[in-house]
Design a protein around this nucleic acid. Structure first.
Lengths: 341, 341
DNA sequence: GCCTTTGCCCAAAGCGCTTTGGGTTGCCCT
DNA sequence: AGGGCAACCCAAAGCGCTTTGGGCAAAGGC
């Protein structure tokens, strides 16, 4: 069933039927009702390919996930963000086009999306400290929104959490408990968020005349085994930390495993504080929070990013939309005063 | 730059340029080379909306994720599967359309996708024991592939792991170690995979004249806190289990937390065996496997499912493609003989 | 009573591609 | 010389929708 057939069956023109379905005022309410009823009865839905060609809008937003080697962003964070964004897209009538890039040529993928007009906008996740994607998208005149930010963060739209503040606060919390040998188990060094978190960590230490201990700072993709291995190495090495700062709950789980194997009790023998993205399947808040954590829902961020990107698509001339979210610090059972030796 | 402009600039017809770009034989190789060079120089890419309208193919495959309340499938498993499938789609020139359904009306979403022709095929994940989606897709004459299976598993294409066999084997392994009070921390009862795993568990027990203990069987969405809470309740209750069988690594992590809090050492005081989907960020194989586990890569499954679905789209008349994957059992450090009391 | 406005509807022209159904050469064959 | 056949290329007809630019009544203004 297409528009022509529907129009014929109603003895109306395609124009009128199209207008009736799309809510234009030039059609009598009685006619509109008749059209809507017939469309429903016939299970008619306009062909999206034809509609998109005619309107020139793709009604689609692209997410590009790089899958290259070590940098692979295939972490749970991307999934929950996607869910949040997808909710909004669905509500607003947009499709979500997910594109995996295996050959490392993310820029090529962007060019392709722009050239063949298959998306109206692009969501950018996990920017590097210097990220070429932003300049490219500006050059392509493609609306985009960055989750995170990079460089001076001027001239484009983004949404980010206050990473520096969050990690300064978390570090302060540990310092207040008397810890001085604090380890930072961070994400990969190239990412902007990892650099900001390191800065927060450094600032808090500096304020008390301390500095990060090089052997207690680690950077890598945020997996459980990375958390486990770094903690194991640090705990078994000289000058072991009395507290850990972890960039994700996944890492913290690895830390907990290493601690457990060594008979160390969280919150007593060793302290852990982590950043919690409030992932759906890693709820940290059953019967009171387990890990002490700075928290910010990645899913909520996905929702908001989607809303902002759609606003940007509707009016590309508007000034950049920038949002900085503060995080909350929830005290759980994984932190306690520094044990006196 | 569109086809007409490109053709004009080359003093060729749109027909010839289109054929040159799409590899048809009616055009001289010299002409083809000239066209390709010009297209490249002009950064020309055919408009995908127009192409799709003209060819009648969407070159898109739909994944529909239900987000309704408890049944929400937002787990890490869906993400890794998506990655695997997306790799193949990209390679084969297909787009991945991801659709989140928040109002519970998955069937409506399917009807919509079919009616407006925005996808050529649909991937179905995590089927319920009786899943209406399959009959619906058959009725809609929409090519689809099920990851998992349901009912008698006849007449449609699917790819599944041998759940019954896997859990029978895992249970046997624990029985061989002398365990008899074994707990099963399963997924939600409605899912087909959960029912098959229960069956495998029951069969292994029955072969030794045993039966599942009702207070040692749990069903719920596979989160870490669910694992933690069920283990806590069972360990603190009467007749605590000496071994656990968990339907995912995430659950097993929750079990480990509960065990750790109670001072129980894995593989000595308590045994855990789980099913491991080989999630990228929960590598269970660093320095030898940690959890004893039945394993099967969900990402590889995603890849294979995508290949099979594309084959199905290319030839919808072919007989159903059905694949049953066996799993491997890897022995780790989380299992040991039943402690003699 | 005539002209303009308003309300409602239609025919037809795109959107940018693919594909059908020819045309036009030039070459070989009889 | 003329017919047949490749080899190349083109004009034009869709694909199914939206949207422009009217047209035709009935209603309102002088």
């Amino acid at each position: 069933m297409n528009l022509k057939q529907l129009a014929d069956s109603l003895n109306l023109s395609q124009t009128t039927v199209s207008r009736a379905l799309n809510g234009y005022p030039e059609v009598r309410e009685e006619t509109r009702a008749r059209v809507l009823a017939a469309a429903k009865a016939a299970h008619y839905a306009p062909n999206s390919r034809a509609r998109r060609l005619a309107t020139g809008r793709a009604m689609t937003i692209g997410h590009v996930i790089p899958l290259t080697g070590q940098t692979e962003m295939v972490n749970p964070i991307f999934a929950d963000f996607l869910i949040g964004a997808g909710e909004v897209y669905g509500r607003e009538g947009y499709d979500l086009l997910l594109s995996m890039v295996t050959d490392g040529d993310t820029e090529g993928a962007f060019r392709q999306l722009a050239a063949n007009g298959s998306v109206d906008g692009i969501m950018v996740q996990a920017p590097q400290a210097e990220d070429p994607r932003i300049a490219l998208l500006q050059e392509l005149k493609m609306p985009f929104l960055v989750h995170g930010r990079t460089g001076d963060a001027k001239g484009y739209s983004w949404l980010d959490i206050a990473n520096v503040r969050a990690f300064r606060r978390a570090t302060d919390f540990l310092l207040d408990l008397g810890h001085t040998r604090i380890a930072l188990i961070n994400g990969q060094a190239g990412f902007d968020f990892a650099q900001r978190r390191l800065r927060g960590f450094e600032e808090a230490l500096a304020a008390r005349g301390l500095a990060p201990l090089p052997h207690l700072v680690a950077n890598d993709a945020m997996t459980e085994s990375y958390g486990y291995l770094s903690a194991a190495a640090m705990l078994d090495g000289p000058e072991p930390p009395t507290a850990f700062l972890a960039s994700s709950v996944i890492i913290a789980i690895g830390l907990r495993r290493a601690a457990g194997e060594r008979g160390l009790r969280l919150g007593r023998d060793i302290s852990i504080i982590c950043h919690d993205d409030e992932l759906s399947y890693l709820n940290n808040d059953v019967g009171g929070p387990d890990f002490t954590a700075t928290r910010s829902s990645i899913r909520a961020a996905g929702r908001r990013c989607a809303e902002n990107l759609i606003a940007l698509i509707h009016d590309p001339e508007q000034p950049p939309i920038q949002e900085l979210w503060d995080v909350t610090l929830t005290v759980g059972r994984s932190t306690g005063p520094c044990p006196t030796i």
